[in-house]
Nucleic acid binder design. Structure first.
Ligand code: FES
Ligand code: FES
Lengths: 150, 150
DNA sequence: ATAAATAAAGACAAGTATATCCTTTTATCT
DNA sequence: AGATAAAAGGATATACTTGTCTTTATTTAT
C-alpha cells in the first residue's frame, strides 16, 4: 500500500504532533525508538519532511530537535505523503495505466472509483492534529510493542 | 498501491480471459504487446500465475499458449494478487504496523476501516470473468495506447 | 523420427528502496 | 571563545524489484 518511507513519515509526524512542541523538541533517537523505525533511515526521511519547513520544523544544536508549528498541525495527512513523494495512492490507476479517468477507464475503474474518492478524502480531510488528538486520548498504538497494561 | 508485478498480472489475466480460450491459446508476445508490458518480465509473472494451474493454464509447443479454464474464470480477482504474493493490500495496516486489528488500532485505523473492507470486497467479490465481460462490452482499456476512433 | 514452436527455467543486469555510517554545519550553553 | 549537542548532508552498503537474455523441456505437426 504505502512505502516504508511513507509509513515511517506518517508515524513520526503523528508522534511529533503528540509529544512535541516548540519548547519540547524531540530528538531523532527518541522518535525512531517511539515508532519502531530504523534511526538513520528515519533521519533521512525527516530531512524530506523538513525541507522548506513544509511539514516538520527543526532546529540543530543543544535542545534542538523536531516539532510542529500550529500551522503544520492543520495540514492534511496528504501533505506528509507529498513530502515523501508518495501521493500516487490517491491519483493512480489500480491496474497501473498511465492515466485514470472517466474517459479512459480500465476494467477495474468502475469498482474502484468510490474507493479512490474515499482514500482521497481520508488523506485530505484528516489533519495531522486530529490524528494526534485521537491517538492521545485513546488506546491507539503507533509502534509494534505490546500495549501496556495498567 | 500495487506492484508492477501485480499490475501486469491483472492486466494479463483480464486480457487472456477476454481474448483466449482452450482452442485459442495466447502467446506471451501477443499478451505483452496487448497490455503494454515488458515481454520477458511478463513471462516470469505468467509462471507464477500458472504454478499448479492456480489461475492461468498453459501448454507448450506449437499452438501452445495461455488460456483460462471455466473454473479459473470464476475465481475472484484476489486469486491473481495471491499468486503474485501481493494481497497485503487487503490485510495490512496503513501505517505499516505488524498487525491491523480492532484491539490494537493505529491512529488511522478508524478512518481506514471501511475503506479496507471495500477494497477487500472489490478483490474478493469481483471475478475474473466479470471483469473480462465488462471490458469486452465497453470502451474500457487495458493498455496505454490511444483509444481507436470508429 | 525429426523439426519447429512455444512455455519453463535459470542466470544475470539494471534500477530503486531501504538501511547504516561518517562528516559537516548550526545552534546552545558555559 | 570554546565545548557540546543536535540535525543536515554525503557516501556507501544491502536488499528487493524490475527487466533482459539464454538455455532447456515439452508439445505439435510434418
Ligand atoms: S483507470 Fe484504472 S482505476 Fe481508473
Ligand atoms: S491498525 Fe493501522 S489500519 Fe488497522
Amino acid at each position: 500500500m504505502l512505502s516504508k518511507s511513507a509509513e515511517y513519515a506518517l508515524r513520526a509526524t503523528i508522534y511529533i504532533a503528540l509529544k512535541g512542541s516548540v519548547d519540547n523538541k524531540l530528538g531523532i533517537d527518541e522518535i525512531a525508538t517511539a515508532i519502531d523505525s530504523p534511526q538513520y533511515f528515519t533521519a533521512k526521511i525527516m530531512q524530506l519532511l523538513t525541507k522548506n519547513n513544509r511539514v516538520v520544523s527543526s532546529v540543530r544544536g543543544p535542545n534542538g530537535g523536531f516539532y510542529l508549528t500550529d500551522a503544520a498541525r492543520k495540514l492534511p495527512v496528504r501533505a506528509v505523503l507529498e513530502a515523501v513523494g508518495e501521493d500516487g495512492i490517491i491519483t493512480k490507476c489500480v491496474l497501473g495505466l498511465k492515466e485514470c479517468s472517466e474517459s479512459r477507464p480500465c476494467p477495474m475503474h468502475e469498482q474502484y472509483r468510490s474507493i479512490k474518492v474515499q482514500l482521497k478524502q481520508m488523506f485530505e480531510k484528516t489533519t495531522i492534529q486530529s490524528l494526534a488528538e485521537e491517538t492521545g486520548k485513546g488506546k491507539l498504538v503507533i509502534n509494534n510493542r505490546l500495549v501496556k497494561k495498567k
